[in-house]
């Protein structure tokens, strides 16, 4: 049933920019319109392209924020979230913990 909602109304997760917009709702309590605009501005694209696979696939690979297909050695998981936190200028709890364990000062 969740899959029906994902297909009917969802943003597409890491296929597109769904996770990025979700991060803004979660960390900054942004309503959907504001969250989309914020992410689009950070990526330098139009809001309509946030769910455009043809645009977002390339952006995700170029920025190292994780693509949905399995590319050996390409950032995913905490490595991708590290870059997402920087891209969106947000605190992600798991990334902050990771940084502290790596003695990362950035």
């Amino acid at each position: 049933m969740h899959i029906a909602h994902i297909v009917a109304s969802g943003m597409g997760g890491i296929r597109t920019a769904g996770d990025l917009v979700a991060w803004m709702q979660i960390t900054h309590k942004m309503k959907i319109t504001e969250a989309k605009q914020y992410v689009a501005d950070k990526l330098g694209i139009e809001v309509i392209d946030l769910t455009n696979e043809e645009i977002m696939r390339q952006i995700r690979e170029e920025r190292g924020i994780g693509v949905i297909t399995a590319i050996a050695g390409d950032p995913k998981g905490i490595r991708a979230k590290f870059k997402i936190a920087e891209l969106l200028n947000i605190h992600i709890n798991s990334v902050d913990l990771f940084k502290s364990q790596m003695a990362y000062s950035g």
């Binding site: 969740h2 909602h5 297909v7 009917a8 109304s9 969802g10 943003m11 769904g18 979700a22 959907i32």
Partner: peptide, 18 residues
């Protein structure tokens, strides 16, 4: 049979242990 929102009107789908 199945319908969907218009392009550009998509929203975030969270879940409860899906």
């Amino acid at each position: 049979r199945a319908v969907s929102v218009a392009p550009g009107e998509e929203v975030i789908v969270t879940d409860d242990g899906c």
